[in-house]
Design a protein around this nucleic acid. Sequence first.
DNA 1: CTTGACTCCGTACTAAGGTACAGGCTTTAA
DNA 2: TTAAAGCCTGTACCTTAGTACGGAGTCAAG
Lengths: 134, 134
Amino acid sequence: MLTTSQLANSAGVNVETLRYYERRGLLPEPPRRASGYRQYSQDDVARLQFIKRAKDLGFTLQEVQELLNLRVDPDTPCAMVKRRADLKIIDIEAKLQSLKRIKKALNKLAATCSGRGPVGDCPILEALGGDGTW
Amino acid sequence: MLTTSQLANSAGVNVETLRYYERRGLLPEPPRRASGYRQYSQDDVARLQFIKRAKDLGFTLQEVQELLNLRVDPDTPCAMVKRRADLKIIDIEAKLQSLKRIKKALNKLAATCSGRGPVGDCPILEALGGDGTW
DNA sequence: CTTGACTCCGTACTAAGGTACAGGCTTTAA
DNA sequence: TTAAAGCCTGTACCTTAGTACGGAGTCAAG
């Protein structure tokens, strides 16, 4: 069982952020001690970490919530869950492609740099294919 | 040569956003016609598209600017450019790992869904390793 | 040569995602 | 047993990234 600040520290976020996430429904309301202090579990650590990472990947809190709520339950037809999951996968695949592109461009830049000779004005854009086609 | 709205349409962004990016220094000030109308080039299309994609990947406009400004020029020591590029690459590698993880989890969820049998309360978190270790 | 669509600039407003108090209890360690 | 540190709630404030005017000049089709 950990306290508010311990949970916050575990993910490197502000204590106030936890309350904000609770209000938004991203973190479930944790049990309280008699004093009213929140008591978090190890599950909450994993959940918070997931939120943080997904957010850093460009997902909005709304989308993060959708990801966390994707589950097989009696109230949601199986096919619908699958459809939603598949949509997210497509989205993620596009992000993977873009990231790999940028990474490749940076690698090229680093290599050019180690070498010699002039390069154009914007190596990043050039490395991305010149014609800007993704 | 394209007009403001043509450039905006090419990336699916608002016209006002272009002016905003120009103010922020993300888009260079384009040449003007006698009337004062902006004239954009094909390079600007590529640049704008890059900005949009990088933004969707969770980079802030500040970071996008840093990426675009990474270049080999006489005023920046080669080693420094390389160091910066390498740092960005590390950052991107972490993002790639996270994305792959989430994708794998979604695939597992979709598979579970197609099958039968009960699953836990939050398949996403479970699929991510159970113990939350990344 | 006019009319509707487009563009200009400056300024103000918005939405998302936090962040910071104030005032008042609770814990904990000396 | 008391002082410092931690936690509670509610409310107000902040930053980032746009978005939306208003008023005025410009362009292009009919």
